[in-house]
């Protein structure tokens, strides 16, 4: 089998800026963000859609960027990485409640939790589990993350 090698020029709207990038059709959004645009917050953890470390927002919905080809992203779609989220309540509460240790899964978890709070500010435990069980953290035992989410919900009230 021969891979399709031609380079395409695409426009991606990332964190509010429109960027031109030359990519291969097989390049994932994760690799383009990290390697072409220097936005390294989103992390490769499995590149198989299992761990969520690569989560970014596309039009406010969390997406595993390792499972998405960059050429698939609709023209004009708003891509937000953790670099595009500054001083949000959930970042504040992650700090207060020790929602992280090594920090590697943190960008994915934060982006996911940020979207959850926007769409379902009153999410109960069941809904929060539905959203956040797509991300793996090996350090915290999830206690700090759960507490950070709850504290953010209180602060947003």
């Amino acid at each position: 089998m021969k891979a399709y090698e031609n380079i395409s020029l695409v426009k991606l709207k990332v964190n509010g800026e429109t960027r031109d990038v030359a990519i291969r059709p097989a390049d994932t959004l994760l690799r383009v963000l990290r390697e072409k645009l220097g936005l390294t917050a989103a992390k490769p953890g499995c590149e198989n859609g299992d761990c969520g470390a690569c989560t970014v927002l596309i039009n406010e919905k969390p997406v595993k960027s390792c499972m998405k080809l960059a050429v698939e992203v609709d023209a004009g779609a708003e891509i937000i990485t953790l670099e595009g989220i500054k001083n949000s309540i959930i970042q504040e509460t992650f700090l207060e409640e020790d929602g992280f240790q090594c920090g590697y899964c943190t960008p994915g978890f934060l982006v996911n939790a940020y979207a959850l709070l926007k769409e379902h500010p009153d999410a109960d435990d069941k809904l929060a589990k539905e959203w956040l069980e797509s991300n793996i953290c090996r350090c915290t035992g999830y206690e700090g993350i759960r507490n950070a989410l709850k504290l953010a919900q209180e602060k947003l009230k």
Partner: peptide, 13 residues
């Protein structure tokens, strides 16, 4: 791979 090798997930703690 992490699809088959099951680790603790959020909400199972």
């Amino acid at each position: 791979v992490l699809r088959d090798y099951k680790v603790l997930r959020y909400g199972e703690e």
